[in-house]
Every structure is written in structure tokens, then in C-alpha cells.
């Protein structure tokens, strides 16, 4: 049970008055956007303060916003990479989503929260592997899902769906070799953005 009658949003607004947060609620889920500079302090408080007790990190995922809401050829204006955290408080039975954008698009860096939630270890490795987001302070930032020696970050929007290289066994060299892909990317159903007036 919650210790006070305030909603999670009110408690966050009260506690972090000096921080530059932007809160939004959608589908009954609260999202907080926090600056990368305040990120560690913000998360530490969420985990330790008895008003929040967000003691479980359920998920951390990277997002590449470069084509968000855009048709082909248009450019996204804001920052490109973000990490989205899903937090859960078992005691208060509450969930919170935290989004933090990396300041630099060329070399995105976000501080690591591994000191706060141990379970973030592999999630940060995954985001690093798939999006190339570096987590400052992570003790063991290696690739996790892709192949040993893989080049590139496959979940970035500019990484082609079919990949860059393909692998086959070469009978002459008697070993597995890599070669540029021989297939072409194709789109069966075009992507269309519709503004459905039922939801606006």
C-alpha cells in the first residue's frame, strides 16, 4: 500500500523540484523524461527513497529515434538515441517508465545504473550491442546478442534489414567465409502513418 495518498506523479514532482523533468501519462502509465546529467541522482532516489521504493528494474531498452514519425527522406530533429527503463515497485505495486536521451548523436553515452540495479547488467550490454549506446561506468560492456566479431549495431534504423554480410562454407578454403549479402531488401507492405480521428 502506498504510504501517502499522493499519486506517483505528485510524489515525483514534489521530490525533484529542482530537476528538469517532463512527465506524461498515457494509457495509465507514467513516463518521466530525465536529463542525462540528472539521471543517476534521479534513479538513486527512486530506488532508495521510501516514497518510491522502485526496487526492481524490469527492463531497459535502447531506442533510435532517427526516423520517428517521418516518411522517407525526412529527418528527426531531436536527439537520436534514448534508453527507456521500466521500473517496478513490489512493495507499492507501481510502475514507472523513465526515458533518458543521450546528448551526443555521434557517440551516444548514458551513465550506467548498474550500481543501483544489478539486473541492468545484461540490458545495458544489449543496448550497447544493438544500438551502440555506451554506458559510462558499466564494468563489462561487451557485445551480447550478436556474433563474435560482428561489425555495426543492427537495431539502428540505418542498418539494413538484410544485414551487410552473409556467411557460407567455402569448399576450397575449407572454412567458413563472410561475403557481402547477395539478397536485396524488399518491403511487402509500405509503412503508412494515419491520423485516425477516433484517437485524436
Amino acid at each position: 500500500m502506498a504510504l501517502t495518498d499522493d499519486t506517483l506523479q505528485e510524489r515525483i514532482e514534489d521530490t525533484f523540484e529542482e530537476m528538469d523533468l517532463s512527465l506524461s501519462e498515457q494509457n495509465g502509465e507514467l513516463t518521466v523524461e530525465v536529463e542525462a546529467a540528472d539521471y543517476i541522482e534521479f534513479c538513486t532516489t527512486l530506488q532508495q527513497n521510501h516514497k518510491f521504493q522502485l526496487d526492481q528494474l524490469i527492463d531497459l531498452c535502447g531506442v533510435d529515434y532517427s526516423t520517428y514519425g517521418k516518411e522517407d527522406g525526412q529527418q528527426w530533429q531531436g536527439k537520436r538515441y534514448a534508453a527507456v527503463l521500466h521500473l517496478l515497485s513490489i512493495r507499492l505495486n507501481e510502475r514507472l517508465r523513465v526515458r533518458v536521451f543521450a546528448d551526443d548523436d555521434e557517440f551516444p553515452v548514458i551513465p550506467s545504473v548498474i550500481e543501483i540495479w544489478k539486473s541492468v547488467n545484461w540490458y545495458e550490454r544489449e543496448a550497447f550491442d544493438l544500438f551502440g549506446i555506451a554506458f559510462d561506468g558499466h564494468p563489462d560492456l561487451r557485445r551480447i546478442l550478436t556474433d563474435y566479431g560482428f561489425i555495426g549495431h543492427p537495431f539502428r534504423k540505418d542498418f539494413p534489414m538484410v544485414g551487410n554480410v552473409e556467411m557460407r562454407y567455402d569448399d576450397l578454403q575449407k572454412r567458413v567465409v563472410y561475403a557481402p549479402v547477395s539478397i536485396k531488401e524488399r518491403v511487402n507492405t509500405p509503412r503508412v502513418i494515419r491520423k485516425d480521428n477516433r484517437y485524436v
Binding site: 498515457q26 502509465e29 513516463t31 524490469i58 521500466h86 502513418i193 494515419r194
Partner: peptide
């Protein structure tokens, strides 16, 4: 098309909490 926004829903999967997070920009994908 799903209206622009995001949602996370989870079920009590036999192995634990299985959830999906969808971020939509209003497209059909």
C-alpha cells in the same frame, strides 16, 4: 495504425513477467 504513443503490458508468463513495450509513431507498423 496505432495512435502515436507507447505502452507496456505484461502477463504472468510461466517463467516470470513477460512484457512487450511498443513505441508507435502512428504508423501501421
Amino acid at each position: 495504425s496505432i495512435p502515436e504513443g507507447e505502452a507496456y503490458a505484461a502477463v504472468e508468463h510461466p517463467k516470470g513477467e513477460f512484457g512487450t513495450y511498443i513505441l508507435s509513431d502512428g504508423a501501421n507498423k
